[in-house]
Design a protein around this nucleic acid. Structure first.
Lengths: 298, 298
DNA sequence: TCCCGTTATGCTCAGCCGGAGCATAATAGG
DNA sequence: CCTATTATGCTCCGGCTGAGCATAACGGGA
């Protein structure tokens, strides 16, 4: 009877939006898969899990995190490569930051590099239909499998189910999680790049979580830089939610929500009418129970 | 330098609703505080965290769980009584079950026994005003403190913020988490009973989570027994959400949602017109993206 | 048997919100 | 001055929500 050693790692999904693209901060060593900033919990010195996490992100990427939220704790025994010796738990966190320069050895990677099927801003990508066809082939006539595919891949598309989609693709072998998974079905184009350990799974969890929270908490403002135009805000929301929005209605919603206030300034971009600049109004939290951007508004 | 031992416990908040009352399954030993079913992760034999959890609940309460969902991982170093020797993490889970008989040594306790301020079905309880007054005294003129109180305790009341409320009360010392906290301010009436370790905190997390999820996932049906009348369904939702609902509108919403279908039978309760019986319609998940009971509808 | 209290159901009405579009304003560039 | 482009304003409609009024179907008593 082996009695494995127990190790807890803290893993951070640090998200930002630059150039209308959702970005995740990854560390890269030559020859290795991209990885999230992470490290083992220091049972003596990290007074809280979150503090340990902040420490690792600072050490590995030079970034001092602001908004941080715990996502999920992963602990499947047989999903680790060295499962026979070690029992590994990973506590995943979501952090939101404003765009910054990446430190050496780190990179702001496009989230869709790893989860390409999640970008529906210009409608449903063709690659999704391809993936879904492969899933359908796997499901055959199995009722339960078809049901799962229908729910996770729609229609209608539900951005929040990012983790369910990843888990389904992973279970079917359409997506490689670790190097040693590669002997499985060769992953099809459109399946995205792999990450180290189960980091891609944690990323999918983060994407699902932030999409849900956008609607009822003012977290976009952790990501956009002030002051911002309403279009910049909209592009940021779209980058995170993965769906395109109706401009006038987005405007109406944001202005009516009390979430922002004009600065009185305008920004000239070179083409078109100058846009008003806005900043976040934190007081809104006192006025409304759950301030956010509401439902999606195509 | 001490190098603490690391231990991970799995803790279950098992919820049911009986007699229009939200209940949590607790184990009770004479002389000890009530506790959630829980136990240490078996790093060798528990293939997944969730399976370990199910095992403990079965062993300690005789219950085979259906719906289970991970809540949060708690790991503050200095919140454990033996923090100097052990680093304890607890992974909390939420489970929903239909009402059953409690096994020996266990009890279905009213959730409000531990979190009395969370029951707003008959309006805001007087005890909440008392707690809030104590909080106000603690806050004094501190802007940040007053802000936190206003957000968590309202108005408007936001049922979902159960954990934030608990943490606030705990931080202020109005609520005892463990026996050795008792030397702090004597907890006022209306502060509820303590539980072992940080179990009350986990319970508060569970209550907040289920309240949020009620609106967009059909989880009430994990708790009501079929067939049910619409009033029974309503009382169950109210018990979990902690707020009272408008009967006709609840009815309209549920019938229009496609969540239920009539059985054709009726139930005579002795007084009043017999009520139609309904059952859950699982197919709804294929038809609607996020089937639930929508917003609160006073 | 008829009246009453009680619970279940049906329906209405006004207000608000979200989905879609049309129309106008304000710039830069040619 | 004309055009392409982006920002803003506003309207219309349908559906949903909050609040009530009204009716139906029972059991128990008077």
């Amino acid at each position: 009877m082996s009695s494995r050693r127990l190790a807890v790692s803290l893993d951070a999904v640090v998200l930002a939006v630059t150039d209308d693209t959702p970005r995740v901060l990854v560390t890269e060593e030559s020859g290795a898969l991209p990885a999230l900033p992470s490290g083992p919990l220091d049972v003596d010195h990290d007074a809280t899990l979150e503090r340990g996490l902040r420490r690792y992100v600072r050490e590995q990427t030079g970034l001092d995190l602001g908004y941080v939220e715990q996502l999920y704790t992963f602990g499947d025994r047989d999903r680790a490569p060295d499962a026979a010796r070690m029992r590994r738990l990973s506590v995943g966190y979501l952090a939101l930051v404003h765009e910054t320069a990446a430190a050496p050895g780190t990179r702001w990677a496009d989230v869709h590099e790893f989860l390409p099927w999640e970008d529906h801003r210009d409608g449903r990508p063709a690659a999704v239909d391809d993936l879904q066809a492969r899933l359908a082939a796997w499901a055959g006539a199995d009722h339960h499998r078809r049901h799962r595919i229908a729910i996770t891949f729609g229609p209608p598309w539900d951005g929040i189910r990012a983790l369910e989609r990843y888990e389904l693709l992973y279970g079917v072998g359409l997506v490689a999680e670790r190097a040693h998974d590669d002997h499985a079905t060769p992953t099809p184009p459109g399946a995205g790049r792999a990450m180290r350990a189960d980091h891609r799974r944690i990323l999918a969890t983060a994407i699902g979580r932030i999409r849900g929270k956008l609607t009822y908490r003012p977290i976009v403002f952790e990501v956009v830089s002030e002051p911002f135009t309403l279009l910049e805000l909209q592009r940021t929301v779209e980058a995170l939610s993965g769906v395109g929005l109706h401009k006038q209605n987005f405007r109406r919603l944001v202005l009516g929500s009390g979430l922002v206030e004009g600065t009185g300034e305008t920004r000239h971009t070179g083409a078109g009418r100058p846009a008003q600049l806005f900043r976040y109004r934190p007081e809104v939290q006192l006025e409304r129970p759950r301030p956010g951007l509401g439902q999606p508004y195509r």
